[in-house]
Design a protein around this nucleic acid. Structure first.
Length: 582
RNA sequence: GGUCACGUAGUUCAGUUGGUUAGAAUGCCGGCCUGUCACGCCGGAGGUCGCGAGUUCGAGUCUCGUCGUGACCGCCA
């Protein structure tokens, strides 16, 4: 037998018991006459004690143990004379009678202690050792608990977990597909799913009514801290629902998870905000509403008054930062540099300081009267001591820059508080967006998203004005999930695909089976998908989803431990009828 | 496709204006130590300064290139 108990469970009440423990050597403290060893497993750490007086040869043996050796020990639990209050097992120790070394360890390249040492490169290469450490272990446990609670909530709500295929047909819309060559069918390829979208709609047509799945999705696009080529979605679909039905149910899921995992009670309903409102108030479709600093449109007030930069701008907007009128020239220059960075690309920044003494100081006071400046302040809700930061230019770019500036100021002022969760639903996204490269409209969400019923008549003549019956869940500025009510009418779906530029033949070859299915009594349906990795990172209060994935890829999509992707043998290539160009 | 940062001992980092033998902490090895728990004390080993070229009397330091890692922009329905 390897163990009667784990290394985290023995307490004072167990004193006197004969136990067997197995685990890794965390650290040993050799005092000469006696030696203490911390034995670690997934559950915790238990101290072993060896004494020269009692068993010299056993003590000698213990002194030879090195970090990360795997051992099995026999011994008796006893109360410590010196207790350690920092350890759950700190009241007891094991007086060891026998050691069996199960496996020696080479010296690990970094210590298995805290998260302080080991750069990204080496930690990724030895991911299995990094996973022994507390921070990553804690993250994976958090992810597990999230997944369990999700399953519980949806099960109670009558959802059925149904698997969908991973080898599917490539679809032209959306992200780049990962493809898999078929051996049996020469020159043909499967694709890995970007999401089970069509399959879950087919399940609705099959009458399953409420479906969910914790499912891997694959997108061959460039990576970020919060993007991996393979990631996990909580994928859901429901029949006979309208938008509010979906929002209410999944709002309930988030409220339940906040309570069950973090013991945070969320009162009330999540705010609903249109896409347009989100852009105008926050400059982005995924606003962080843990704090204010909202954007004020100053185009009417500040334009056309003889200041050339503003007069030629399509849009002028500002954010009022409380109690920052005392900002120095240096601090303001830093902010100007920030917004002029190529990634943000604002032309410059105008400030107005509303001083405590009631006076106004601005970088543009040559061009505007004090009353005009005060008028802006009034509109932006500035009080004495506040600082108004103004950007101008082409509208969408300027709003983007303002949203970045808003986040930067919030970071500087410590307004993005960890442990606070501010969810909202963003709704009424545009159905379509213009694709410059391909000179055509494309679906903003996906081609199966239903337009709002009142906008359907605009489809052919004013496609850019059509709003989608779609919604995103945003928490703390992170897009956690999104979905839509789907098109369940084959004629409307046909119109939609035509609008996207598909010919009849393309429509039939790409989506024929879905269009056909829609003709056999498709119920009204809609759904949503959440990013489990992002949800875990959000609950764990960190940015990088890699820390919540056991074996992630680096930012070039490479598995640094296994060294994938990699070449395959000529034999494999031959079987697949593949040959390299060049 | 592009921008930025970093790359020095097993690990995390310091290294001045370009100047003699490249340091610290930690880890590792050896010795001492009977209540430690980041044990303590003493001693020791450990370096292709990512790689290549250039400037220079002289390069860890400056320049260019290259590779690696991270972050971001484009991209991601």
């Amino acid at each position: 037998m390897y163990r009667t108990h784990n290394c985290g469970e023995l307490r004072l009440k167990d004193a006197g018991k004969q136990v067997v423990l197995s685990g890794w050597i965390q650290r040993s403290r050799d005092l000469g006459g006696m030696t203490f060893i911390d034995l670690r497993d997934r559950y915790g750490i238990t101290q072993l004690v060896f004494n020269m007086d009692q068993d010299a040869s056993l003590c000698e043996e213990a002194r030879k143990l090195g970090r990360e050796d795997v051992v099995r020990i026999d011994g008796a639990v006893r109360e410590r004379s010196n207790k350690n209050k920092n350890l759950p097992t700190g009241d007891i120790e094991i007086e060891v009678r026998a050691i069996e070394v199960l496996n020696r360890s080479e010296l690990p390249p970094f210590t298995i202690e805290e998260d302080t040492d080991g750069g990204e490169e080496i930690r990724m290469k030895y991911r299995y050792l990094d996973l022994r450490r507390e921070p990553l272990k804690k993250n994976l446990i958090l992810r597990h608990r999230l997944a369990q609670k999700v399953r519980h909530y949806l099960d109670i709500a009558d959802f059925l977990e149904i698997e969908t295929p991973a080898l599917i047909k490539s679809s032209p819309e959306g992200a780049r597909d990962f493809v898999v060559p078929s051996r049996i069918h020469k020159h043909q390829f499967y694709a890995l799913p970007q999401s089970p979208q069509i399959f879950k709609q087919l399940l609705m047509i099959s009458g399953f009514d409420k479906y969910f799945q914790l499912v891997k999705c694959f997108r061959d696009e460039d990576l970020r801290a919060d993007r991996q080529p393979e990631f996990t979605q909580i994928d859901c679909e429901m029949s006979f629902v309208e938008r509010e039905d979906v929002l209410n149910l999944f709002e309930g899921l988030i409220v339940y998870l906040l309570d069950a995992i973090l013991q945070i009670k969320y009162n009330g309903v999540f705010p609903r905000m249109t896409y347009r409102e989100a852009l105008e108030r926050y400059g982005t479709d995924k606003p962080d509403i843990r704090f204010g600093l909202e954007i004020t449109d100053l185009t009417a007030e500040a334009g056309g008054k003889g200041f050339r930069v503003f007069d030629t701008a399509e849009y002028i907007g500002g954010i009022c930062v409380p109690e920052c009128a005392g900002y120095s020239r240096k601090q303001l220059d830093q902010l100007t540099e920030f917004v002029k960075r190529p990634q943000i690309a604002a032309g410059g920044m105008v400030y107005v300081k509303f001083q405590e003494d009631g006076s106004v100081k601005s970088s543009v006071d040559k061009f505007f009267s004090v009353d005009e400046l005060k008028g802006w302040g009034e509109r932006a809700g500035a009080k004495k001591g506040d600082l108004l930061l103004i950007l101008s230019g082409e509208k969408s770019r300027t709003l983007f820059a303002l949203s970045e500036l808003r986040l930067e100021m919030a970071n500087r002022l410590g307004l993005r508080k960890k442990g606070k969760y501010a969810p909202l639903w963003v709704v009424d996204f545009p159905l379509l967006e213009w694709n410059e490269d391909e000179n055509r409209y494309q679906a903003m969400h996906h081609p199966f998203t239903s337009p709002l019923p009142e906008d359907v008549s605009l489809l052919e003549n004013h496609p850019e004005q059509v709003r989608a019956n779609a919604y995103d869940l945003v928490i703390n500025g992170v897009e956690i999930g999104g979905g839509s009510i789907r098109i369940h009418d084959s004629a409307l779906q046909d119109r939609m695909l035509k609008l996207l530029g598909f010919s009849d033949e393309e429509t039939v070859s790409q989506f024929g089976f879905l269009l056909e299915a829609l003709r056999y009594g498709a119920p009204p349906h809609g759904g949503i998908a959440f990013g489990l990795d992002r949800l875990a990172a959000l609950f764990g209060n960190t940015e990088s989803i890699r820390d919540y994935i056991a074996f992630p890829k680096n930012n070039a999509g490479r598995d640094m431990m296994a060294d994938a992707p990699n070449f395959i043998s000529q034999k494999q290539l031959d079987e697949l009828n593949l040959r390299f160009r060049e």
